[in-house]
Simulated assay, not measured.
Amino acid sequence: MRLLLIRHGQTPSNVRRLLDTAAPGPALTPLGERQAAALPAALADERIGALYASTLLRTQLTAAPLAAELGLEVRVRAGLRELAAGELEMRGDGAAISTYLSTVFAWSAGDTGRPMPGGETGQEALARIDAVVAEAAAEGVTAALVGHGAAIRMWTAARVRNAAVDEIGHRELENTGVITVSGSPAEGWRLERWTGAPVDAEGPGAAVGPAGETTDELPDTPTA
């Protein structure tokens, strides 16, 4: 089967480059609304049979145009929520973002017992995402999962066999960018395609936020 892992549309916190992971979270910017509205056309060739979103407002708003076009119910699942920033919540400084992303990709590399400062461990994060993926896979149809930048990138790097952790860390995931994987929980997953946003989001005001940024230009993370 195939999974379409879709990052939500742009939010004000993305523009401000903040680690905004708590529920219910912000709504979409005007650009984010255009991105969401463009998803049905961008995915018109897909035979989507199930549609999921997280408990955060931005994913449900992103999924709404697709649900309306397909006549599908949006299945809201807490397991798809963003990786909790814990003590780093609502920070946008380089040290906080570096700590957050280095922890996220340490989980992908196998250090799943490492906790986010004041937050969950990789074991907990992977388990909740895996549970939703297993539910979607049991449907036996192409499923679209609208989630969050860090959660999608972390899970892809950890669970997709032809996606190396370093490679995912160096790849940006734009708002409403789509990662397509195929396979199953039992046999494993393979990366098919990594596409950008359906609406051109380059230029001023097009920030994707720290959860979707590459790790290339982050400052070194303190090891204390």
Rank of each mutant, 00 (worst) to 15 (best):
M1I: 09
L4P: 02
L5P: 11
R7F: 00
R7E: 00
H8A: 00
H8K: 00
G9S: 09
Q10M: 00
L18R: 13
L18E: 15
L19Y: 11
A22E: 15
P24R: 06
A27K: 13
P30S: 12
P30N: 10
G32W: 07
R34G: 04
R34E: 05
R34W: 01
Q35M: 03
A37K: 08
A38S: 02
L39E: 02
L39Q: 03
A42V: 06
D45N: 14
E46L: 09
E46Y: 14
R47Q: 14
I48H: 05
I48L: 08
A50L: 11
A50G: 13
A53Q: 10
S54V: 07
T59N: 08
Q60M: 14
Q60I: 14
L61K: 13
T62D: 11
A63L: 08
A63W: 08
E69Q: 14
L70Q: 09
G71F: 04
E73N: 07
E73Y: 01
A78P: 05
A78K: 12
A78R: 13
G79C: 02
E82H: 02
A84V: 08
G86F: 06
R91V: 07
R91W: 01
G92L: 03
G92S: 06
A96R: 10
S98N: 06
Y100S: 03
S102T: 14
S102Y: 03
V104R: 00
F105A: 08
F105E: 08
F105M: 11
W107Y: 04
S108R: 05
S108K: 07
A109S: 15
M116P: 01
P117A: 00
G119I: 13
G122N: 03
Q123K: 05
E124L: 05
E124N: 01
A125F: 05
A125S: 11
A125Y: 02
L126R: 05
R128D: 10
R128N: 08
R128T: 09
R128Y: 02
I129L: 15
I129P: 00
D130G: 10
D130R: 07
A134R: 13
A137Q: 06
A137K: 03
A138I: 01
E139G: 15
V141Q: 14
T142A: 13
A143D: 09
L145M: 03
G147H: 04
M154C: 13
W155S: 10
T156P: 02
A157W: 07
A158L: 09
R159H: 06
R161Y: 07
N162W: 04
A163H: 09
A163R: 08
A164H: 08
A164Y: 02
A164S: 15
V165C: 10
D166K: 12
E167V: 14
E167F: 07
G169E: 10
G169A: 11
H170R: 15
R171G: 07
R171M: 13
R171N: 11
L173A: 05
E174W: 08
T176I: 01
I179G: 12
S182T: 15
G183R: 10
G183H: 10
A186K: 15
G188L: 07
W189D: 07
R190M: 13
E192Q: 08
R193S: 12
W194I: 07
W194V: 09
T195C: 00
P198F: 02
D200Q: 02
A201G: 11
E202P: 03
G203M: 04
G203N: 03
G203V: 07
G209P: 10
E213I: 12
T214A: 10
T215P: 00
T215E: 12
T215K: 06
D216K: 14
L218W: 12
P219C: 02
T221Y: 05
T223D: 13
